[in-house]
């Protein structure tokens, strides 16, 4: 890979959605900083974070948009759905109402993103097993019915947080490799590494990585 600060081949755009207080910002913080942020202030509008990850030998920069859960800012946050390659839909396993709202979040996501957008369902706060209000089985059934990937995670302990973000990236990367995701399409949510000298060089890079890729 070429040196310098831009050592990544792709930029994937993610959004994190879900009801207020389910821990979206904490998940993002856990993923980008590997720390749990207690007393996280409420997100107004959107905030964002980035991290460079490695998927199948490719360096990928994740640009993650953390949206506000409040209905009041729905108008603002809606404009961020456009051009998201991955959507992390979060609910709180200790509050059933946040689970019940998933269908409306899913509708929004399906309406505002493109069909190739990977949607990942995350049941957050799985460290609070004692207060569980939504069973793993029903959530996983919901995910299965709607063709979502699903995992229960904890932003506090960091359980499954990495996995959720990485699995989503892997899926998006597969879509690119399969040609299901058109990089040239506007709003694909994926940007190819900019200013890489030599296109041929890059494509051979891709070729190599494809061979190496275990997935």
């Amino acid at each position: 890979m070429s040196g310098g600060p831009y050592n990544y081949s792709y930029i994937f755009k993610y959004i994190i959605i879900g009801d207020m207080g389910v821990g979206k910002s904490c998940l993002l913080h856990q993923f980008t900083e590997k720390k749990f942020m207690a007393d996280c202030p409420h997100t107004i509008g959107v905030e964002f974070g980035t991290r460079i990850i490695d998927v199948c030998g490719q360096k990928i920069k994740l640009q993650i948009w953390d949206t506000a859960g409040q209905e009041r800012f729905r108008a603002v946050t809606r404009s961020y759905y456009r051009g998201a390659a991955g959507a992390l839909m979060v609910y709180d396993i200790t509050r059933r109402s946040t689970y019940n709202h998933l269908s409306s979040w899913l509708t929004d996501t399906r309406n505002l993103t493109n069909p190739s957008t990977v949607i990942f369902l995350i049941g957050n706060k799985c460290d609070l097993e004692a207060q569980r209000d939504v069973t793993y089985e029903e959530a996983s059934k919901f995910a299965e019915e709607n063709g979502l990937m699903f995992v229960e995670a904890s932003a506090k302990t960091g359980d499954n947080v990495e996995e959720a973000f990485l699995e989503t990236a892997k899926k998006i990367y597969q879509s690119i490799q399969d040609g299901r995701l058109d990089l040239n399409a506007a709003e694909s949510g994926v940007q190819h590494k900019p200013s890489t000298p030599g296109r041929n060089n890059l494509s051979s890079d891709n070729q190599g990585s494809k061979d190496n890729c275990s997935c």
């Binding site: 107004i44 509008g45 959107v46 009041r72 800012f73 108008a75 603002v76 404009s79 961020y80």
Partner: peptide, 13 residues
């Protein structure tokens, strides 16, 4: 204030 905030947030869109 919320109206003002929403306007400002709209800048990024």
């Amino acid at each position: 204030v919320y109206t003002a905030i929403t306007d400002l947030l709209g800048m990024d869109s």
